[in-house]
Design a protein around this nucleic acid. Sequence first.
DNA 1: CAAAAAACGAGAGCACTGCTCTTGACGAAC
DNA 2: GTTCGTCAAGAGCAGTGCTCTCGTTTTTTG
Lengths: 232, 232
Amino acid sequence: MTASRTARERVRAELTREITDIARRQLATEGAGGLSLRAVAREMGMVSSAIYRYFPSRDDLLTTLIIDGYNAVGEAVEQADAGCARDDFSGRYMAVCHAVRDWAVAHPHEYALLYGSPVPGYQAPEDTIVARSRDVTVLGRIVSDAWRAGAVPAPAEEEVPAELADEAASVKGLMPGVPTGVVWRAVSAWTAMYGWISFEVFGQFNNTIEHRRAAFAHTMRLAAATVGLSSA
Amino acid sequence: MTASRTARERVRAELTREITDIARRQLATEGAGGLSLRAVAREMGMVSSAIYRYFPSRDDLLTTLIIDGYNAVGEAVEQADAGCARDDFSGRYMAVCHAVRDWAVAHPHEYALLYGSPVPGYQAPEDTIVARSRDVTVLGRIVSDAWRAGAVPAPAEEEVPAELADEAASVKGLMPGVPTGVVWRAVSAWTAMYGWISFEVFGQFNNTIEHRRAAFAHTMRLAAATVGLSSA
DNA sequence: CAAAAAACGAGAGCACTGCTCTTGACGAAC
DNA sequence: GTTCGTCAAGAGCAGTGCTCTCGTTTTTTG
């Protein structure tokens, strides 16, 4: 990768990286809407049209920032999971939840870029889907580990409506052998987590909830219990 | 209100309304980012600077659209609740959830304006807080009605951490007499609902979940059960 | 009823954006 | 060593939010 061939390719990779770094800094301070190609170019001492040699459009720059963001979340989640005892399933779940929230609170604008209102007309390219699924992959591993260990009680057979039985194949593929009822409970818990974080990051809890981290932990504990991950 | 004093005030109210209508239409098609004061002026046959006689800035126009949006959600929620038998608590809860989701699916860009990434630097004025709390007010009424009727089991005393005991006063004020444990479960369920809807509206379920309405209903049923609203 | 005051629409203009096109210089490959 | 592809620069286009000025019209005041 970094085994640069010609000098030109080397400096190109360097500049591409510098552009994304500056763009990420601007994103962090101004938000996605305030990201300006011209401002990036200005900060690099280049003229604005030169940027287009590296990114064909503003959307393409945003796309690489999005991919980087998903990878950052994924990495945080994976490290959090790796730091727990393998058989402490609820501990792993809670650690993973806090990892997502901590990253979101530390990078609110990047989080908004990933999980907030999508830019109209913006089409997520194929490149994003791998990075995007790293978090739910970890979730799937925790749940299926817990299930295999017999730590998760099976919900009633009739809990899941018939039309949902063959749904969400891509999620089920991450939890082989886990019954549908548990899978849906896990999906519910996972979306609930992002809902909570979005409310917090987007300011919906202002003047309402102050002990954010504790409240988040409490909510996640309830969600984990619903999935069947009993607290140790 | 419409007892217009002078002719000038009458035409002013008329034009103000026309501006917001056109703006709302543009918002629905282009999204918040694509809302252009100049385009609104063009569609009205006015020059762009004339708009500023009615709205001092683009943000102020967005603010009235936001207030209108919150009121639309609130009205949908209130009507959904009013259409149910008063003692069918889980039915009321489910009806209210579907009301929010149906509105969001029908008005994705307006929903994004209300619950998506906030515009950086945008400060929600005081005017919004009344309209904003109409939905959670209904939720509070359902839960406290159910609690008063003895339909909600009390969670264990020690469930809620001590630091959360005196939190979220504004929410608790909507559920007088309801124990803290139930309040927090209701808050969790409510944020989970918005999390689900945001994921759906913002496209996170693309290529993953197809039977959106059924999956939403299933998730909401799980959440209602966690609160203690047993299905009839 | 007439004069002062306020509100209004039009227009020009500023600073900014994303993006395109052309021009001239530099490095790489044949 | 010449040709070819890559690059930064600059000018320019269409669009944005917003400000200011200038007559005109309507309302309020004397």
